[in-house]
Structures are given as structure tokens and as C-alpha cells.
Simulated scan of single mutants.
Amino acid sequence: MTRVKGFDPHKMCVATVVFEGTAAEVAFQERTLRAIAVRHGGLPGGAANGERGYQLTFGIAYIRDLAFEHWAIAESFETSVPWSRALELYERVKRRVELEHERRRLPGRPFFTGRLTQVYSTGVAMYFYLSFYAKGVADPVAEYAALEHAAREEILASGGTLSHHHGVRKIRQDFLDEVYSEGARTVIREVKRALDPDNLFGASNHGVRGAVAPAGETEQAP
């Protein structure tokens, strides 16, 4: 790739593509993509690297433990955004994280990067990876949560969504009022009440905003 084809490892990029459909549809998609890639100086890499990439999924737990030993705390989060605002969103979120890290007087410099994980005709799914050096920090988990919360504020202000596929969960519930109307939240509550009146799908979570409260308790709005 570098010696024969002359690719610059500091500028090159790699895309993993999955073709779906009938055998004829997949063959057509692959021929079309190869032609586009060759036209722009790209090179088909075959299926082996894509398959090998998923081995990282199984190795992440071991990498995580090693990172913890060196006082690194890290996590990922995602959003979706129209193509027209993708680069702006990335730059704004990166800058917001850097400013928040400095404001909170955390040690060192934050590590922040992102990538496009899914692409559509109207927009992209964007993953962010955030890490910082936690030695000497009294509550690293709380500090990380504060950094991600600031990043999520900037994501929404930049035209991104509250989530792409990870859902809202407890960590993003503070933003529900910004993305869902009261009518939409009422619909969600009523669907939850109809399908799970005993709150079996959220055991011990009846104190969390948005959960259906058992009889005799006050329900908190999502």
C-alpha cells in the first residue's frame, strides 16, 4: 500500500462496506463501488480485513483493562447528522470538549476523535471517542459524565440528534425535553403503561424520569 501504490499512511482512509441483497444485487453493488473507487485512486482491499476488524470487538475488554492501569478513562458516544453539517458538528464538539476539559482543570489534554460509522443518502452516523488522564482526579466517572454532557449539548446545538442507535438511557434523559414535545412524551408514557403496567422492563427504575410509577407512587415525567 505504501511502497508500491504510494499511499500516504497519514492521509489515507479505509472504508468497510457490507453489500446486501440477492447475488445479482450484491454483484452489481460491488462492481459499481469498485469502479468509483478506481476512478478516484482507490484500491479494493478484499473481505479479509473487514472480517479481521471485528476481532477488535472481542479484544476491547483487554485493551480497556490495560488503559485503566495507566489512568486512562474513556468511552464512546454517537449521533446522527445531515451531511451538510457533519464537519461543522465534529469541529464544534471537539472544541467544546477541549474547553470543558480546561475549565474543569483536568490533568493533561483530552484525547478526542471521531469517525463515520454508517452513511445514508441524507446524513451520517458519527461516533466520538473521548478519553482523559485521570490520575489524581477525585471522581473520574463524574468528570467524564460532565464532559460528555457538554459534548451532547454541543451536538444538539450543531444539528445532531440525541442518539443514533444507542438510545437515550439514563445518561441522556436530561435532554428529552429538548427533543420531544410533551405530546410525544405522553405517547411514550402511555405505550409503556399499556405494555408494561408492572414496570417489569425497568426493575427498580421507577424513580428514574420517564418510568411508569407503581400504584400509589408519583410518576415522574420523561
Rank of each mutant, 00 (worst) to 15 (best):
T2A: 15
R3H: 09
V4I: 12
F7W: 07
D8C: 00
P9D: 01
H10P: 09
V14Q: 14
T16Q: 13
T16P: 03
G21Q: 08
A23R: 15
E25G: 15
F28Q: 15
Q29L: 15
R31I: 05
T32Y: 14
L33N: 09
A35K: 09
A35T: 11
I36W: 11
R39S: 15
H40W: 15
G41V: 09
G42T: 07
G42H: 05
G42Q: 07
L43D: 09
G45A: 08
A47T: 15
A48V: 11
N49E: 14
R52T: 08
G53K: 09
Y54R: 14
G59A: 12
A61S: 13
L66Y: 13
A67Q: 12
E69N: 04
W71A: 01
W71T: 00
A72N: 11
E75V: 15
E75A: 14
S80Q: 13
V81K: 00
R85C: 08
R85Q: 15
L89C: 12
Y90S: 15
Y90N: 14
V93I: 04
V93L: 00
V93Q: 01
R95C: 06
R95G: 06
E98S: 05
H101W: 03
H101V: 09
R103I: 03
R104G: 11
R109Y: 06
R109M: 08
P110S: 01
F111C: 06
F112W: 04
R115K: 11
R115L: 12
T122G: 12
T122P: 07
T122R: 12
G123T: 00
G123N: 04
G123V: 02
V124C: 02
A125M: 09
Y127C: 02
Y129P: 02
L130D: 02
S131Y: 03
A138D: 06
P140T: 10
V141Q: 10
V141Y: 09
E143I: 05
Y144N: 05
A146I: 00
H149Y: 10
H149C: 07
A150V: 04
R152G: 04
E153Q: 14
E154M: 15
E154T: 13
L156Q: 02
L156T: 01
L156C: 06
A157R: 07
S158F: 00
G159F: 06
G159I: 01
T161I: 06
S163Y: 10
H164S: 09
H164A: 08
H165L: 06
V168C: 07
K170Q: 10
D174W: 08
E178L: 10
E182A: 10
E182P: 04
I188W: 09
R193G: 02
L195T: 04
D196I: 00
D198N: 01
N199W: 02
L200F: 07
S204F: 12
S204R: 11
V208C: 06
V208M: 03
V208E: 06
V208W: 00
R209F: 11
R209W: 11
R209I: 04
R209S: 10
R209C: 06
G210K: 04
A211C: 06
A213P: 03
P214G: 00
P214E: 03
E217S: 08
E217M: 05
E219L: 02
Q220F: 05
